[in-house]
């Protein structure tokens, strides 16, 4: 139903060339599955909040980097200052290779190479945007990161100065500027997300062996200290 509506509207609005139409037709239900790649950082749907990345409600028609309450990388701010707006075509280009459109953003994602997957994903995101065809009763699809961490661990207040010292172990690979050249950005994450991710490495739920090793010997307070530091790191 939703998928049908979307396809119809897009085809009607754009009409244009067949190539364009092809690029934007998509299956929102299939796109929801593709969104699993994004949901570690981005929420969408009712109650969606900014996490590692901004929430994606209402993204169609938005200027890039324009959520005032989200702290964007300088690279993304520059992208926004060029006047870039998010529409099916710009989203398609961005999602194909995020780094090609803007190097140095904190979006640690290589892109969605398959054009159909992108079209489906864009169709799915489209269902959370108002204009021109709103679908207001969107399901709350945003995924909270699964974890079974003791709330006391999440409640720890990190020692930021200690975190700054500990962070020097991280910045050998993760750039303090937030730039991503093959190793993900870890700056400006919500502290809770950071703590959950580090404990997932510590418990070997997340797979990277370097991170399992580094996180494996960090205590709860040290992880909290790192989260506090990286959440508020200075430019």
């Amino acid at each position: 139903m939703r998928q049908f509506l979307f396809t119809a509207v897009i085809t009607a609005c754009l009409g244009a060339t067949s190539a364009q139409a092809e690029a934007v037709q998509g299956d929102a239900a299939a796109g929801e599955k593709v969104f699993a790649k994004c949901s570690g950082c981005h929420q969408v749907g009712s109650g969606a909040k900014h996490r590692v990345g901004p929430h994606l409600n209402g993204i169609f028609g938005m200027a890039a980097g324009s959520h005032e309450e989200f702290r964007y990388s300088k690279a993304f701010q520059r992208l926004g200052s060029t006047g870039l707006e998010w529409h099916a075509d710009t989203l398609d280009a961005f999602l194909e290779n995020p780094r090609a459109m803007s190097r140095g953003t904190r979006m640690s994602f290589p892109g969605v190479k398959d054009a159909d997957d992108r079209a489906n994903l864009i169709a799915y995101l489209r269902t959370f945007s108002d204009n021109p065809a709103d679908i207001p009763e969107a399901d709350p699809t945003a995924q909270v990161l699964d974890h079974n961490l003791d709330p006391a661990i999440l409640a720890l207040v990190g020692d930021r100065e200690y975190g700054e010292y500990l962070s020097s172990e991280c910045t050998t690979c993760h750039q303090a500027s937030g730039g991503d050249s093959g190793i993900p950005s870890i700056v400006y994450w919500p502290e809770e997300d950071f703590v959950i991710a580090m404990h997932a490495y510590k418990e070997k739920v997340r797979p990277n062996p370097v991170m399992q090793l580094v996180a494996g010997r960090l205590g709860d307070e040290e992880i909290a200290a790192l989260a506090a530091y990286f959440a508020t790191i200075e430019d």
């Binding site: 690979c173 993760h174 750039q175 991503d180 050249s181 093959g182 190793i183 990277n208 370097v210």
Partner: peptide
């Protein structure tokens, strides 16, 4: 990852 480390 090694490319990312080098930049880092």
């Amino acid at each position: 990852e090694s490319e990312g480390w080098y930049s880092g």
